[in-house]
Amino acid sequence: MRIIAGRHRGRTLAAPPGDATRPTADRVRQALFDMLWHAPWGGRTTIQDQLVLDAFAGTGALGLEALSRGADHCTFLETGRAALAALRANIAACGEEPRTAVLAADATRPPHARVPCGLVFLDPPYRKGLVLRAIAALEKAGWIAPGAIIVAETAEDEALDLAGYERLAARAHGAAMLHVLRAAGGNGC
């Protein structure tokens, strides 16, 4: 697993042993960031200069990819001890400590945000209903900015219907489905 593009392009990322963490595959991340950058509803400002939240962060691959491509700051939420160790090692390997915050916190019971984020990644374990629970909790805690882009990864056959969010895209990539939503209250990020 590696960073696909930007200032950290080619940087190898560590993953914890075992199958408790399921990192987003390089090809899926490539497809996701291409979509964010080139879709009619997307563009460079979808990533560049954004405050990013990587919830269920695991190795931090999504948030670090966003930083590599020009995001201003990324907050990572993760609870697994092995994943937190890999995440911190990956942040250090990229030299991104000044532009990151790592919170050992559950995305379904997050602490209150200091500033809302314009780009939110959710990559929880599949088939546990965690995306909907996390979005509700993150919204209540102030993590989701008006008009924020939310990217949620689920199992391909897992439905994701969310009132109050505009569905911008849904793309299958093998066993994974990427859902891209826009929060109410803005015309984009």
Rank of each mutant, 00 (worst) to 15 (best):
L130E: 01
A92R: 15
G164T: 13
L130M: 14
P110N: 14
A141S: 14
P116T: 11
D123G: 13
V28S: 00
P124K: 11
G58S: 02
H112W: 05
M35H: 02
A183Y: 00
D49L: 11
D157W: 06
I135H: 01
E153R: 05
A107W: 08
H38V: 12
M1C: 10
L162Q: 06
P17T: 15
R182L: 07
A155E: 06
M1K: 10
M177R: 15
D123M: 05
L67W: 02
G10W: 10
A170R: 10
P125K: 14
I150P: 01
V52Q: 08
N90L: 12
A183F: 01
G70A: 09
A5Q: 10
P110T: 05
A105V: 07
L53Y: 08
A141R: 02
L62C: 09
R182C: 05
A163K: 14
L36I: 05
V151N: 03
A137E: 15
L13G: 10
V115D: 09
R27M: 03
G174K: 05
A145T: 04
L53T: 14
L64Q: 01
A85D: 11
F33A: 08
D34W: 04
R133A: 13
R22H: 03
D157V: 04
P23G: 13
Q30D: 06
P124M: 13
I135T: 14
L13V: 10
F56M: 08
G42A: 10
I149Q: 07
R44F: 07
R9T: 07
P111L: 07
D72P: 02
P17M: 13
R133M: 03
R2A: 02
R171W: 01
K140Y: 03
V115T: 15
A71S: 11
T75G: 01
P125G: 12
S68E: 04
R81P: 11
P124I: 12
R27T: 06
P110M: 06
V131L: 00
A136E: 15
R69I: 07
C94F: 04
E139P: 07
A169C: 00
L67Y: 03
E166F: 05
A25R: 09
A5M: 06
V52N: 11
A93M: 10
A105R: 05
G42H: 00
A155I: 08
V115W: 03
L36H: 12
H38F: 11
L51R: 12
T24F: 02
L103W: 15
V102Q: 04
V52P: 10
A66N: 04
Q50K: 09
M177E: 05
A61K: 07
A14S: 05
P110Q: 13
F33K: 00
P23W: 07
D123T: 12
R29F: 00
A93T: 04
E158N: 10
D34R: 07
A61Y: 03
L160P: 06
W41N: 00
T154C: 15
R114G: 15
A15M: 08
R9E: 08
P40M: 09
D157A: 13
D54G: 09
G188K: 11
A136S: 15
A92T: 14
E78P: 10
L168Q: 03
A14W: 06
F121G: 11
G80T: 11
R9V: 07
P110S: 08
H38R: 15
P116C: 10
R127N: 14
I4T: 09
A113H: 13
W143I: 02
A85W: 08
A136N: 13
D34Q: 02
Q50A: 15
E158D: 14
R11M: 08
C74A: 15
A39K: 02
R171N: 01
E158I: 12
R99Y: 06
